[in-house]
Design a protein around this nucleic acid. Structure first.
Length: 608
RNA sequence: GCCUUAGUGGCUCAGCUGGUAGAGCGCUACCUUGGUAAGGUAGAAGUCGGGGGUUCGAAUCCCCCCUAAGGCUCCA
């Protein structure tokens, strides 16, 4: 069905001659005048005959949506055959129009249906604001999506190759229980603000930017270096797996069929722009990677081939009430690796390696994950044993979902979630088997059989979004607050060691030490301010600095310092070389970047 | 997006039934020349989220909007 919506000051019509298909009408309907109206010009098409009910439903939805915005007093249904060259039979058309009239009426709106099948004169005054002229194509294809949404999954706990009912499993107070309750929608929330929101601002990591859209953050130098280090970390990780880094645009053209189809799954979450071209901001790196491979010449010898991109940024138009701190954003940074595999068997092998990689990130970042393993019924029936084998790697019970049929592009998927202070999951790493996109994006490779095939594609984010990683780390400090002083891992700490001077005459010596630390790839700084030692120590601890020590006359004399180690709370006597050794041990095998702030605290900006 | 609550110097907050603003931290200056979680004194800094309304008079009452938190819903 083709529709033209006009928001008008008034419309006036008068019937003239009958056509052979004219409906019988009362005298009263032979002319009409309506002010403040939303006029819905409609052409019912052949295609619509298959499912008139759904067409009615979808049109009513569309009219309601538009009228919620323009708030017209009347809705006028105006049959207008000229919008289409493939018209339905008049009988169906009248049936649909009457159905729409009734439905809108039932919604409590004033609706008037202009007679069908007559030649009419009409006069209309279009208001001319941006929403006053809209054209729409109403289709019946939403029904499939609606249906599949409502098909229920089966949920189990998988432990030791055994499936148990989620309600019967003995969780023993573990985090898995929290995940299950939340995932199955039974979770009662204690409420309260997630601690990371306060922390991210207090520690000058990042903050809301009110001059942007909601869910788009600004990052201070301390936050920026944490982001960069995490990015370096993932880069190293995927490079070791043989992934090739690429960079692709953040805007995509919705007039491209494959992009539109892929994006359609995203519905209202699309972040759109108001430009001439019909552009959408990417919600992940998929489009970019697929386009690179679509245009590449691939043979079976090239596969599996992996492309990696850190999407700074990806965008999702999350609903206003869902956007929170670092947990749910509209603009976020997603490490995204796509593996192009010859067939499902090859993708299973890769999947396994990538699960190992996800597990490794939990170890490296010291974050505990709970796991949800999902598959369609078909996949599960065929690859049950393989799935159990993967689950064994996790080495603890996990939540298991079996979907009755494929709803999205994947057939099998594993999600790793950290649990926040309030017991709610933060979805982080994921691996997914995509069996649709190869075809949709026309990605082909030349097989060993000398024929063209579509690859199976794995989507993998080994850590989940950078923002959510930081979120998990901050939430963890709040969870552990009773047992240990809050801090980030040393390798991620924006400042790793601080030298505090007792008096002005110790500044030069302190500076030498800081230089020495810096030359050994340690982010060190100097509190050279004219403040009491007590105050400097207090400041250093509010900044979560892993190693601090004071230098005064005694230290200049002995070249030894009492270093306060935040992690353990110990005070250890050591010289500078011993401290360097300890820090280098903490940072071992982890990325390093230089200090992002002035070395002297007296020169530092207070960003808040 | 819906419901509830909130928005006061850079930060954290006080300000009763309407009479046009306060504290602590931070910042600046001076004093102190220091020894392991806040040394002292003084000063600067606010269109009370924005817009409209009621009133002689609005941070305070009413309406609309923006932003945040919580809940609902949702998350490839």
């Amino acid at each position: 069905m083709r529709v033209l919506l006009i928001h008008s000051d008034y419309i006036k019509y008068k019937v003239k001659n009958k056509t052979p298909i004219a409906e019988e009408i009362d005298e009263a309907k032979k002319d009409g005048f309506f002010e403040e109206s939303l006029i819905v010009f409609t052409a019912v098409e052949k295609e619509d005959e298959k499912n008139p009910e759904l067409i009615i439903k979808n049109l009513v939805e569309e009219v309601k949506k538009t009228n919620n915005q323009v708030k017209a007093e009347n809705i006028i249904l105006y049959p207008y055959a000229h919008l289409s060259s493939s018209l339905s039979s008049p009988k169906i058309a009248i049936k649909i129009l009457k159905g729409v009239e009734t439905a809108i009426n039932e919604e409590g709106n004033d609706v008037f249906r202009v007679p069908f099948g007559w030649y009419k004169s009409f006069e209309i005054s279009c208001k001319g604001h941006p929403l006053s002229e809209l054209s729409r194509t109403i289709t019946a294809d939403e029904i499939e999506e609606d249906n599949s949404e409502s098909l229920k999954s089966d949920w189990y706990i998988l432990n030791d190759s055994k499936l148990s009912e989620t309600s019967e499993f003995d969780y023993n107070g573990s985090n898995l229980e929290k995940l299950v309750y939340h995932e199955l929608g039974e979770g009662e929330s204690d409420g309260g603000e997630p601690p990371h929101v306060k922390l991210m601002r207090e520690k000058e990591i990042c903050d809301y930017e009110l001059a942007s859209d909601i869910g788009n953050l600004k990052w201070y130098p301390k936050g920026r270096i944490i982001r960069d280090l995490l990015a370096d970390y993932v880069y190293d990780l995927v490079s070791n797996q043989g992934a090739m880094p690429i960079e692709t645009p953040i805007f995509y053209d919705l007039d491209n069929d494959s992009i539109r189809e892929h994006a359609a799954k995203f519905g209202e979450r699309q972040y759109r722009t108001d430009t001439k071209k019909n552009l959408m901001l990417r919600f992940a790196c998929c489009f970019g990677a697929f386009r690179v491979m679509e245009e590449s010449f691939l043979t079976w010898r090239n596969l599996p081939a992996k492309l990696y991109e850190l999407s700074t940024y990806s965008f999702r138009f999350e609903k206003r009430g869902e956007v929170v701190g670092l947990k749910r954003l509209r603009g976020f940074t997603m490490p995204d690796m796509h593996s192009f595999c010859t067939d499902l068997d090859q993708s299973l092998e890769e999947f396994e390696k990538q699960v190992d990689m996800c597990i490794q990130t939990g170890i490296d970042l010291n974050v505990d994950y709970e796991i949800i393993f999902r598959a369609t019924k078909d996949f599960y029936d065929k690859y049950k044993e393989w799935m159990y084998k993967i689950a064994k790697k996790i080495n603890k019970p996990l939540l298991f979902e079996i979907l009755p049929e494929r709803k999205h592009y994947w057939t099998c998927k594993i999600d790793f979630a950290a649990i926040d202070y309030l017991g709610r999951p933060i979805e982080n790493p994921t691996v997914q088997i995509d069996v649709e996109s190869g075809k949709r994006f026309n990605i082909t490779y030349l097989g060993e059989d000398e024929k063209e095939h579509h690859p199976v594609i794995l989507h993998c984010s080994p850590t989940g979004s950078v923002e959510r990683v930081i979120c998990s780390l901050l939430e963890k400090t709040a969870i552990e607050l009773e047992d240990k002083a809050p801090m980030l891992p040393t390798w991620l700490s924006p400042i790793q060691a601080r030298v505090l001077t007792v008096g002005e005459k110790h500044v030069e010596y302190g500076k030498e030490l800081v230089e020495k630390l810096s030359s050994q790839n340690i982010r060190a700084d100097l509190d050279d301010r004219d403040e009491s030692v007590g105050k400097k120590i207090r400041n250093a601890s509010t900044e979560w600095i892993p190693y601090i020590f004071v230098v005064g006359d005694n230290e200049i004399e002995s070249n030894k310092f009492q270093v306060t180690v935040r992690e353990t709370g110990e005070k250890i006597d050591m010289n500078i070389d011993e401290l360097i050794e300890k820090l280098n041990y903490d940072n071992k095998n982890m990325p390093f970047r230089k200090l992002t702030l002035p070395q002297n605290i007296s020169k530092r900006i207070n960003f808040q």
